[in-house]
Nucleic acid binder design. Structure first.
Lengths: 340, 340
DNA sequence: GAGCGCTTCCAAAGCGCTTTGGGTTCAGGG
DNA sequence: CCCTGAACCCAAAGCGCTTTGGAAGCGCTC
């Protein structure tokens, strides 16, 4: 069933039916109701190719899917995509994921030229991200998950990484900790830098300037790295009594390291992790339950999709910037350090 | 730059340029070369909407993305998608993921009616899967990752789950184990049933008919469940000396359970896991390194995409069925049971 | 009752591609 | 020298939708 058939069936012109269905004016309420009902009844769905051709818009969001880079290793990214997909779907938008090896430029160029996506979503921004300039050049609307350095305004959704990690570190300081290690994600990415900055700013403010030296490790957020980094830090002397991890996966590894060294989480070493709410790794099921800074990455995905759609439909960029606050959830993995 | 401009630029008709670019006959080799070069040079990309409209095909593969069901919790699914995306991209196909809450019917109907995907990919089939009939009814080509029960032939890619788990169980039997537990994925899904059948057939063949009773657990393949199920099994008496897990994530949890009970993997309890080669959870990094049955789920994704594209371009279904063999990799987590 | 402004509808012109159904040219056979 | 067929190319007709530029009808006012 296509538009022509539907309008013939209704005894109306294609114009009117189209306008009725797309919510334009110039059509009497009664007519509109009739049209909408009929469309519903016969199960009319506009052909996406035709609409795409006629409007030049594709009703799709694009996202580059790096098949060999770190991002993919990363369940965080996936959970984020889930959020994007969920919201896009609700709004009748498709999500086109285009895999890419190496640089994403090729994909964006295709998106732009084939008009295959109305807006694209940028993940894992680094401090000076060449993709920004590329997308601007291509005139392809984009929204960034995270932030980056660029003179011009751009649409983004981020969480308060700095604040979260400052607060986490402050909590440990307040409990009496003095040597607090940081197990961070890849510090070429902005979120990780922000977190490090948050952590060190708390230490600085407490007058522990030297305390940042050698107490940070960074790398891909895997359990394995969590173990390695934690073990590495815990073997320095004097031993840190607190560890702040950029993900639950890292914290997971840190727990294992603590145990392996014959220590106990909570008693000997306080641990805080950042919880993106990955559904298959829940911090409260750890033993002891993990204290976390928490911000659901899926929700961020939804918000990003929302921004992307609005951007594609004309909302000005400067309205599309958001920094979400982060919760701090106190659980059993943090305590005052033992007196020695 | 569109076709018309390109052909004007070349002094040829749109027809010829189109035919040259799409590899049809009726165009002189020299002309073709010239056209292809020019297209390359000016960076011509056909407008996907227009092509879609003209051909009725979309050059896209579809996949329903369940945002609230178990699948999504599941890094296995994601790794699979990565494979699909990688191969699709290589072949110039897009991957449209359409999120769905609850049933996938709505999504497929949309795919079919809007011709938004030339073929769809079906994940996590259950024994009697209603989606099969639906897709057949919609005339939407599909390929299944896994298998299901249906009278008519269908395209699928599966691994030898039965053989793999029989072999894993046989290995433990050969080492002298007699009580061997199974920690399985959700047994409404076919792969999990097949694995259970493989496990029990090995036990049966060894004359241990009763040994299957109460020694199997099943549920979502999370670390948490791995822990719960393993702990549960290890607290039965007599204690099983071997555990076979349907995923490394489960095995991960099982390790934790073994340790928590003051036992040691390898010495007191032999563990085997199924390794889908999730890049962020590597079995050989466990301590002791995990013995696995191994089959990269990403490769399966690539193969499924390959099948889907071929299906969309006319390859008959009966050529598109494949059952991959599974490797068994022997590592330190398996040993002969202690004599008691 | 002519003129005007509204509302409601429509015919028709594209959007950029593929594909049908011929043309035209040229070589070679009768 | 004409005819035939092969090789190459082209004009034009859609594909199904949106959107422009009116037209028709209606109730007013002047």
């Amino acid at each position: 069933m296509n538009l022509r058939e539907l309008s013939a069936h209704l005894g109306l012109s294609q114009t009117t039916v189209s306008r009725a269905l797309n919510g334009y004016g110039d059509v009497a309420p009664a007519t509109r109701r009739k049209v909408v009902e009929a469309a519903e009844r016969v199960g009319y769905r506009p052909n996406s190719g035709a609409r795409r051709l006629a409007t030049g818009r594709s009703q799709a969001l694009g996202i580059a899917f790096p098949v060999d880079r770190n991002l993919l290793l990363d369940p965080h990214f996936i959970e984020f995509i889930a959020g994007v997909a969920a919201h896009a779907g609700e709004q009748g938008y498709d999500l086109t994921v285009s895999p890419t090896t190496g640089t994403e430029g090729e994909v964006y160029r295709r998106f732009a030229r084939m008009r295959t996506a109305d807006a694209v979503i940028l993940s894992g921004p680094v401090l000076e991200d060449p993709r920004i300039a590329l997308l601007r050049g291509l005139q392809l609307p984009f929204v960034v998950h995270g932030r980056t350095q660029t003179p011009l305004p751009y649409a983004f959704v981020d969480i308060d990484n700095h604040g979260a990690f400052r607060q986490a570190c402050q909590l440990l300081l307040d409990l009496g900790h003095r040597r607090i290690g940081l197990i961070n994600g890849d510090e070429s990415q902005t979120f990780a830098r922000d977190r490090r900055a948050g952590w060190s700013s708390a230490l600085m403010a407490a007058g522990l300037v030297a305390a940042t030296d050698g107490l940070a490790r960074a790398g891909a957020m895997t359990e394995e790295n969590g173990y390695r980094f934690a073990r590495d830090l815990l073997e320095t002397s004097p031993r840190p009594t607190g560890l702040i991890c950029s993900s639950v996966l890292l914290a997971f590894g840190a727990y294992r390291a603590v145990r392996d060294l014959g220590l106990a989480v909570g008693r000997d070493v306080s641990v805080i992790g950042h919880d993106d709410e990955l559904p298959f790794l829940r911090p409260h099921t750890l033993d002891p339950p993990l204290t976390v800074t928490r911000s659901p990455i899926r929700k961020a995905g939804e918000r990003v999709a929302d921004f992307a759609i609005r951007l594609a439909t004309g909302t000005p960029i400067d309205r599309l910037a958001e920094i979400k606050p982060v919760d701090l959830v106190y659980r059993g993995s943090t305590a005052a350090p033992e007196v020695r």
